[in-house]
Write a protein that binds this DNA or RNA. Structure first.
Lengths: 210, 210, 210, 210
DNA sequence: CATGAATGAGGCTTCATTCAT
DNA sequence: TATGAATGAAGCCTCATTCAT
C-alpha cells in the first residue's frame, strides 16, 4: 500500500515557507518597534527579502499585519490547547493557559503587543482585517472563559462572571510579560505565574472571604 | 490673611495657560484617533491655534505626547489621592483607586490609550521622553503598591508581593475600560469594578484557600 | 468716490498665483513628456517648488492634471472668442478659430497633447476628472459647430453636418501643430493655416462639385 | 512549378509565430487599456505565456511597443494597398484609404491609439524605437500623399500641397474613429466616411470656389 | 526555451518640522 | 508671539526587468 503523494506541489511548499517567513519577520518587527513604527521596508529587511516580494504574498500592509497577528493567535491557541489537554483539573488547566501565554509571548514579542496595543481600539472597526483581529482576541478570551465556566460547574471555582474573570486573568498575564520585557528574561517567570494564579484563585484579602 | 501674590508674571500665566490648552487638545486627539493617527495639525486645530505655535511650547511631537501623558498622570494621581484620602480602611482605599482610574480613563480616553499602547515598551529607553513616561507609570504603580503594603501591615491583606499585586490590579482595571469602550459607556461600571475587587480580594477558587 | 477695496486678501492673490504657477508647470511638463511620463516630482521641479507644496494646492495628481487641462481650455476659449468676435463674416471667424488654436497650442504644447492623446479614451469614463475633461473638449467642439451652423444659415457654408465638420476642421488644425512641433516653429504657420482653410472650404477636387 | 521550400528552420517558424502572437497581444492590450496602463504582465497573460518569455523575443517594453505599432502599420499598409489596387480612379482610391483606416482601427483599437497618442512627439528622437515609429507614420502619410499627387496629375484633384492634404485627410479619419469609440461601434461608419470625403473633396463653402 | 519569483527604482502621498512674515 | 506656507524625508505600492530553475 503506497503512501499517497502529498497533495502539495513543491511550489506550494515554497510559497508557504515564504509566507511564514514573512509573517514571522512581521511579528518580530512589530514586536520590536510597535505597530505604528513597523514599516514594510524593515519587515523586508528582517525577512532578508526585498520590499516588493512581500506584495507577492500579501495584498498590502494591513492584510500582512492582520495575518501576522492571526498567525500568532493560531500558534498560541494550538500551544494552549495542547497544554490544557495535558493538565488534569480545571485549576491546573487555567495555570497552563497562563504559562503558555507567557512563554509564547516571550518568544514572540509581537504577539504580546497585540494584547497590549489593542489595535482594534482605533477608529472603531475600520476594516475587515481589524474585524477579524478583534474576533481572534474574542475567541481566545472565550476559550479561557469556557474553561472557567466548566471549572465552576465542576466545583473548582466559585460563581464568578467567567468572561470578566477570563479577561482579568489574561490582563494579569500581560503584567508578567511586561515585567519580563522590562527587566529582561529571567528565570523567575514561573514564580510570577504562580503568584498571579495564587492571587487569581485566592485573592488578596487576609483571613477568609470578606 | 491675604494670599501672597504668586511670583509669576502675566507672561508666565499666559504661557502656562497655552501649554495646558495644548496638552488637553493632544490628549483628546490621541483619545479619538489613537497614538499613531494623531497629527500635529489636528491637535493644533483642536486647540484652536496653528501648527507652528505648538513648537513654541514643545520641542517636538514626542515631547508633546510625553508631556500630555504626564499631565494625564498628574491629574489621575491627584484624583486618586483625593479619593483614597476620603476612604477609610485600606480595602476601601484600593477600591477608590480602581474607581478613580476607570472614571478618569472614560473621561480622558487618551490617557487609557497610554496604559494600553505602552509606547515605552519599545527598545528600552529609546528617548528621554519615553524614560519619563515610564517613570510616571512606575510612580503610579508604586503608589498602589504602597497602599497594598500598608494594608498588609494593617492586617487587611495577606502577604503578597505588593508590586505584582498592584500591577495585576491595575491590569484588571484596564479590562473594565476596554469593555466600556467596546460596548459604549453604560451604567454598569460600578458593578464591574465591584466584581473586579471581589475577585482581587477573594479569588476565584471555590471553598477556602487552596 | 473711493475705489472699493478689491474683495481679495493678499493671501488669496498669492494662493492664486501659486495655483497658476503650478498649473503652468504641469501643462509644460505634460507637453514635454506626455501624459504618462509626467510625474509630480518633475512638475514640482519645473515650478521651482517642492513635491509636497503641490498638495497644498491640489488634492492629488489626477485633480491637478484635470485642472491643468481645464485651465488650458479656458485660456483657449477666451482667446478664440476674442478672435472670432473681431472677425467679420463666418468664414473669417472660422479662420480665426484655426489660427487661435495653432497659436495657442504652440505656446502651450501641453494643451495640444490633450487634443492629441485624448485621455478620455482610457477605460471609459473612469473618474469625475476625466468626465469634466471630456466635457471641455465637447464644449470646444460645440463652439465651432455653432459657428458653422450660423454660417450655414447665413448662406456662407453649404448644409453639412456641423458637428462632424467641426471635428474635422479641428483635426486639421492638429496636423499643423504636429508639423510645427516636428519641424520646429517657423514662419510658415499662417500659410499652412491658409491651406487648411482653403481645403476645408473648397475641397480637394478639381473642377466643380463632384 | 513547385514553390521552393523556404529556407527557414522549424525553429525560425516557431520563433516568428511567437513573435506575432506577442505583438497581437500587445496591440490588443494597448487598445483596451491605453498606452500608459498596458503592463508586461497583462500582455503576457493575453498572449498565454509568461512575462519572462516576452524578453526572449523583445529587448524591452519600448521595443515591444514600437514593434507592435510597426506590425500594425504593416497590416494597415497591406490592407490599404489591396483596397486601393481594386479601386478605379484616384478619388475612389482615396475613399478606400479612408475606409481601410477606419475599419482597421476599429478592429485594432490599439493601432488607432498610436495615431492618437503619438508618443513619438516627445523630445524629438528620444530613442531608436521612436525613430522607427515616426518613420512608419511618415511612410503611411507619404503613401496617401503620393496617391493625391498622382490624382492631381491625372486631373482629379486640384493643385494642393499633397503632404498637407494627406495629413489633413488622415486626421479627418481619426475623428470618425474617435466618434465610433465614444458612441460605440454602429452601422453609420460608411455614412461618416462619405461625409468626410465629401467635405475633403468639395469643401464646406457654399456656392462655387471662394 | 520557458517560467515566474524576486528585485528595486520610482511614483504618489503624508506629515513633522522650519522659517519668513 | 503667532502663523501657515513650504519643505523633504519616509511610507506604501507598482511594475519593468532579471535570473535560477
Amino acid at each position: 500500500m503506497s503512501i499517497p503523494r502529498p497533495a502539495r506541489t513543491k511550489e506550494e511548499v515554497v510559497k508557504e515557507f515564504r509566507t511564514t517567513e514573512i509573517l514571522e519577520a512581521a511579528r518580530r518587527v512589530i514586536g520590536e518597534l510597535g505597530y505604528g513604527e513597523a514599516s514594510m521596508e524593515r519587515i523586508a529587511q528582517k525577512a532578508g527579502i526585498s520590499k516588493g516580494t512581500i506584495y507577492l504574498y500579501f495584498e498590502n500592509k494591513e492584510a500582512l499585519f492582520a495575518r501576522a497577528i492571526e498567525h500568532g493567535f493560531e500558534q498560541l491557541m494550538e500551544k494552549t490547547r495542547a497544554a490544557t489537554r495535558r493538565a488534569r483539573g480545571h485549576t491546573a488547566k487555567v495555570s497552563e493557559v497562563a504559562r503558555s501565554a507567557v512563554e509564547y509571548s516571550l518568544d514572540y514579542l509581537s504577539f504580546y503587543r497585540v494584547l497590549a496595543e489593542r489595535p482594534d481600539l482605533g477608529p472603531a472597526g475600520r476594516s475587515a482585517a481589524s474585524d477579524r483581529l478583534r474576533a481572534n482576541v474574542d475567541d481566545y478570551v472565550q476559550y479561557v472563559a469556557d474553561l472557567l465556566e466548566r471549572g465552576t460547574r465542576a466545583g473548582e471555582f466559585r460563581g464568578i462572571n467567567p468572561h470578566q474573570a477570563a479577561r482579568i486573568l489574561l490582563a494579569g498575564v500581560r503584567t508578567i510579560i511586561d515585567e519580563q520585557i522590562r527587566e529582561g528574561k529571567h528565570p523567575l517567570v514561573q514564580e510570577e505565574v504562580d503568584t498571579l494564579l495564587d492571587l487569581f484563585l485566592n485573592g488578596a484579602a487576609a483571613g477568609g472571604r470578606s
